[in-house]
Design a protein around this nucleic acid. Sequence first.
DNA 1: ACATTTGTTAACCAACTGGTTAAACTTTTT
DNA 2: AAAAAGTTTAACCAGTTGGTTAACAAATGT
Lengths: 204, 204
Amino acid sequence: MKKEKEATTEQQILDAAKDVFQSKGMDGARMQEIADKAGINKAMLHYYYRNKQLLFEAVFKNAFSLLAPQLNIILNDDSSLEHKIKNFTFNYTDFMIKHPYLPNFIIQELNRNEDFVLKLKQNTGFPNLEKFKLKVDAEINEGLISPIDAEQLFVNILALNIFPFLGKPLIKALANKDEKTYKEFIERRKTEVADFIINSIKLP
Amino acid sequence: MKKEKEATTEQQILDAAKDVFQSKGMDGARMQEIADKAGINKAMLHYYYRNKQLLFEAVFKNAFSLLAPQLNIILNDDSSLEHKIKNFTFNYTDFMIKHPYLPNFIIQELNRNEDFVLKLKQNTGFPNLEKFKLKVDAEINEGLISPIDAEQLFVNILALNIFPFLGKPLIKALANKDEKTYKEFIERRKTEVADFIINSIKLP
DNA sequence: ACATTTGTTAACCAACTGGTTAAACTTTTT
DNA sequence: AAAAAGTTTAACCAGTTGGTTAACAAATGT
């Protein structure tokens, strides 16, 4: 067997499948289009991944494994809440600028098949809120921030960071933005969102 | 022609199409399933709506025409920003609890076909930000709120209100919530989100 | 050297999909 | 009451789709 090419073909398929699935979704994607983009015969897709569903799951798990570490930036480091929020907002936004299809792909497919998330939760490294909750409660007790439910705060942080990518076409339409001004708008959010959150919770 | 039944068949199709399109999206929806759900022959779909694309557009415009007035709650009334935010947050969340598929459907299909939004913008009643911007700037000048870009604020408001519905499966997984605790979580947001926003921008 | 395993292709297939057609039935018009 | 217009159905159709097969090519083991 050809060691190098073996890995390459399988990877070529995965790369092509990522492109097609992320832009068209499970239902809109076509096996033939993936094969064409990978520059190989359609039968190879089945040779390496058996069927569309398994190929899709490989792509999806890959995508989620990119997102999970981003979430752990805010959930599992030991810095102050203020630092967590600034760090996460900046990193996450920067990361998403480089992977613009990712949030929509994950949200869309998670909604299409709610049971699918159960498979992900079995993975080690699936993000966990416990440490974040403790930190929030600790800072409340120290009088550093005003009382707030940690889960609500976490969803607020996610919302403010993820929504601008999910709702890109809506935002462009509502605010009359073209691609350039939209990007500038997102760029500004790298710091503005963190300030917005911290303003809301920090005590003087 | 039968006046009553004429309207009814067309409406039955639209209702069935709404169900199927909103839960499966354009690509995942099947004309046969819509016909079955409407209890009629598949040919009738084409008789009334010509083809899948036009039927889809009818459903989509219908859905968007439900959303637009919700946005105008915050954009076009004359009350204070604080009142706008409280009013919008409460109304929007309450509305979405009753139409849970709506946000995901709109966001998903807007992302699938970015050009599609252009058709919507031609509609009269398409939400417009101008009045909201003036109000924000006015309250900044009056010293009521801290300086903030009106568009950023508006996207923040949208994000905090819409994301919890878009990211429902993700939130349920990350926070270990079942359907019941998720609903309680959303219910609390009707007031908490408004407080979170106002806390962030209001000056003492 | 040669048999075995692994990788690749072209051709094929059954099921499905959106859409059409022609005829039947119903309501409205004249 | 008959013609015209509108509504509904069953059967059909061509193109597409995910997936299979059988034969061929390349690498590997012995």
